[in-house]
Amino acid sequence: MALLEVKDVRKRFGGLQAVDTVSFAVAEGTIKALIGPNGAGKTTLFNLISGFVSPDGGAISFRERQVQGLRPYQVAAAGMARTFQHIRLFPKMSSLENVMVGRHLHGRSGFLASMLSLPRTRREELKAKDKAMELMDFLGIAGLAGTEATSLSYGQQRLVELARALACEPRLLLLDEPAAGLNMRETAEMASVISKIRDMGITILIVEHDVSLVMNISDEIIVLNYGRKVADDVPLAIQKNEDVIRIYLGGDDA
């Protein structure tokens, strides 16, 4: 069974059918991309999967467990981490602290243990810090650990956010336009990082506007338009799909 299975999921906002009976699956260890014009419902689909929005209908199973209707923190605890299209770092906290928040699920200490600063708590804190530094090192941002996260450059902020999501040690990583706002060199670096993450054994679902990036790194691609699934296939087949070509040449800016 696939790691993530989305079945007939629907979501309506007022008069707008943002996601219209969409089904797809993501196999363990692959990179699956989600593309489509602006407003196609990609972010909404992410929000549905990660629990930020509850679906009007349909089912979402993750690791063979129904997750639709769960709160986001419960979905995260099930092993899913995400980044946001509009970067959501914690202001007034250093990059390192931001990434350490990502270690939350791997800590045990509660209010009492933390207030008493028990030895176990302190050991846990050190371990969280080490792991966070290791990830920042992996993404080449270890040097920025002490800097306030929101004062970094756009590209650096994207990497901190990615490190924070990786700190959760997720089975599935949802990336919403990780290359948005990056220059060409940064985009290429991001592509290679994403491939590396997959090689670490983490399954990835990615929304991306940069079609060439998507074609290069993904194993499969889904195309969404007006909330409906238009195609779901390997990159080569998508390139030849006439519906997809019509959508992309039809004047949309994607």
Partner: peptide, 9 residues
């Protein structure tokens, strides 16, 4: 929302 996404109840 980001805290929520990190598994914080």
């Amino acid at each position: 929302d980001a805290a929520d996404a990190m598994g914080i109840d």
